[in-house]
Amino acid sequence: MLVGILDPLSRWMVPLLFLVILLAGAWRRIKVYEAFVSGAKEGFTIAIQLIPYLVAMLVALGIFRESGAMDLVMGAIRPVTNLMGIPSEILPLAIMRPLSGSGALGVATELINTFGPDSMIGRLASTMQGTTDTTFFVLTIYFGAVGVQRYRYSLFTGLLADVTSFLASVYFCNLWFGAA
């Protein structure tokens, strides 16, 4: 099966990458130690520079979630998704997915354990978790790292992909595992 090939591939990837890089550096007679340190310095600076952007975004999302505003949004969307035959138990995950990676993983884990990993909701939660990335987080850190403040249409594109992936997950899970 596909996973049988891909799993060792992803385990071998990092060690092989290190090996190729170090051998290429040695072959080209690069001062590998000095090069590594100067690159690592850059990594440190980037991580520190992210803090103000992350604080701004995660504080806003923290208030939004803790206050119950997120639950209100979910309540407003529920009638629409019920109409489309999407189980309402999955909605918190759909809302959380673009906002918070750890939050979404938490919700997905809870759903999988509550309803069982091989239930429709468990499968749907697993599929959704793997389909998109945390749009707000990715945009915040990637644009934050280079000081870009105007995102133009990229937020729209990211959220459009999230909605599409969510609907596609529902569709393909029904197709794959047979409609409930």
Partner: peptide, 16 residues
């Protein structure tokens, strides 16, 4: 970040 960007600097200088 430090680990990967360190490795990347070597890769970059080696032309990879």
């Amino acid at each position: 970040m430090a680990l990967w960007l360190g490795m990347m600097r070597i890769a970059q200088e080696a032309g990879l």
